[in-house]
Design a protein around this nucleic acid. Structure first.
Ligand code: SF4
Ligand code: SF4
Lengths: 142, 142
DNA sequence: CAAAATGATACTAATCTGGTATCATTATAA
DNA sequence: TTATAATGATACCAGATTAGTATCATTTTG
């Protein structure tokens, strides 16, 4: 069982690369050259990040993507939310039916508890904290 | 994303039922009558628990399953291990290839850390702690 | 021997994850 | 003003995992 799926992982790598890149605006082609991520898949991911306002995109020649937020304002918890939906360690739903024991189930209570802890850990993790060293970031508002 | 899959959940419910049951040896047919779990699936699960020595099974008329351990010796962590393999929140393997960044990746370090916490939480959860009230358990060694 | 139980195992169905393919749109620069 | 280099939108496909069935063999007891 994975806490982060591949989309999320790829997204993080791409964001890190963009954050550290000399250029402010980075085209997918550049990412393709540097990261080992399937091209079209990566593109899809970046488009999603754009829609979700973590990236800003520029079309046309010379275009590409740039960070819309400073790396210390980008949280892993948000990326997980975007690509995997809100983190739930146990939904207690079978075949679209809610488990009838949900109110009293002790197991559920325990898992809910663990979940809270995980989420609070996740909220501490920013993109900035994942960069090896903060090199050439120049976005406004950093 | 789920911390426990359905097998594990079913296993817990079944074990709870057996633990609380008047009879020491409980046939699957009895569980079927009381739990909303697909019959053949539950059987498979119990057979696995038997192989893994959490249950003891008795064949033939009057047979069934009984707990092989006291409920306070049955750990959720073990059930997860049995049905889902060893808990890894991020395996860092893509297409059977290990991610080349594994040594240095800060993300991995963070997730490994969370994983440790989750595992330690899980080790605290016993079957006994999931029973509403310990009623009629009479297994040896309790 | 019949009935009631588990043992073993192979198969199928549904869902989720990871990834492609295609065509449309936009912006720049020669 | 047109070729080119970029993203936008969307539909599709493939593999893996999870969930569940089906079948037949074996054992035990009355
Ligand atoms: S039994 Fe408890 S944990 Fe399992 S699905 Fe129902 S409520 Fe959730
Ligand atoms: S990038 Fe880090 S987290 Fe993602 S797979 Fe590689 S090592 Fe694991």
């Amino acid at each position: 069982m994975k806490l982060i799926t591949r989309d999320t992982d790829y997204a993080i790598r791409a964001l890190c690369f963009i954050a550290k890149c000399e250029k402010e605006i980075v085209p997918v082609s550049e990412l393709n050259r540097n990261l080992r991520i399937p091209g079209p898949f990566l593109r899809k991911i970046l488009q999603i990040l754009n829609k979700k306002r973590l990236l800003r995109s520029y079309k046309g020649k010379g275009g590409g993507f740039m960070l819309a937020l400073a790396p210390n304002k980008i949280f892993l918890a948000d990326l997980i939310e975007i690509f995997q939906g809100s983190l739930k360690l146990n939904e207690c739903i079978f075949k679209k039916r809610i488990c009838p024991d949900r109110k009293t189930c002790k197991l559920k209570k325990r898992i809910d508890n663990i979940q809270k802890q995980v989420i609070s850990e996740l909220k501490d993790i920013t993109l900035a904290s994942l960069l090896d060293e903060v090199r050439t970031y120049r976005a406004k508002g950093a």
